[in-house]
Design a protein around this nucleic acid. Structure first.
Lengths: 107, 107
DNA sequence: ACTTACGGTAAGTTAAAACTTACAAAACTG
DNA sequence: CAGTTTTGTAAGTTTTAACTTACCGTAAGT
């Protein structure tokens, strides 16, 4: 599952709210949309994006559609960030040394 | 530093490229922009967003401006995701029991 | 079979954000 | 001091994406 999609999906505040609401447990669309500042179809569209990003799964339950957190998408983003963490620390450490002093010329 | 900004900043592919380029080490704007599919001012704007998100820092070096990875923004996003990881796993595990027919995707 | 509830999708509108060119400020160079 | 280099910012355009209303299919209840 591509981390790119998951990152993009979680970037939108409204969509993030939808995602976070599912952390309380699997819920049908109507329940998720209830109390949201946007319309029910908007929530459906957000769920579609989240699903394509591997962040949620869905299951039919009668006429309702129950959505649930899918750890795969979250894991993909975590892996992406972890991959760079050491490099980021190293780059920052290297910078910290020349930061306060005037750097030498030449390249 | 708000994880929201960092998340939004990393969502854009071009901006992510700028960020990833800095993982090789601190670089001035011109160097970063070189080889990019967008104009130099566009890169400057991306750097501004990354800076406001706490993902990079900048330092003046003569007429050049050297940008460097800032771990703080990255750390904020990691914390945000880690905070939900256990809950996500729990929600998924609970779901897996109800849907024993198709625990994984495929088809 | 008819009716009601639930939710996905289409079409269209509106708001945001990414990109471009043009310009201006600051600092080296000769 | 005049000219060049390097970068940030303003203004304006274009592309993207978020949201709304309207509609259709499917499943359950009477």
């Amino acid at each position: 599952m591509a981390y790119q999609n998951a990152l993009g999906a979680l970037a939108d505040p409204t969509r993030r709210s939808v995602f976070e609401r599912l952390l309380d447990g699997p819920q049908p669309v109507g329940r998720i949309a209830k109390g949201m500042p946007v319309s029910r179809p908007a929530v459906s569209q957000h769920l579609k994006v989240l699903k394509e990003a591997g962040l949620v799964t869905d299951r039919a339950e009668g006429t309702r559609r129950v959505y649930c957190i899918d750890p795969h998408g979250l894991a993909a983003v975590r892996r992406y960030l972890d991959q760079f963490w050491d490099q980021a620390l190293a780059a920052f450490a290297a910078e910290a040394e020349k930061a306060p002093e005037k750097p030498q010329e030449g390249e």
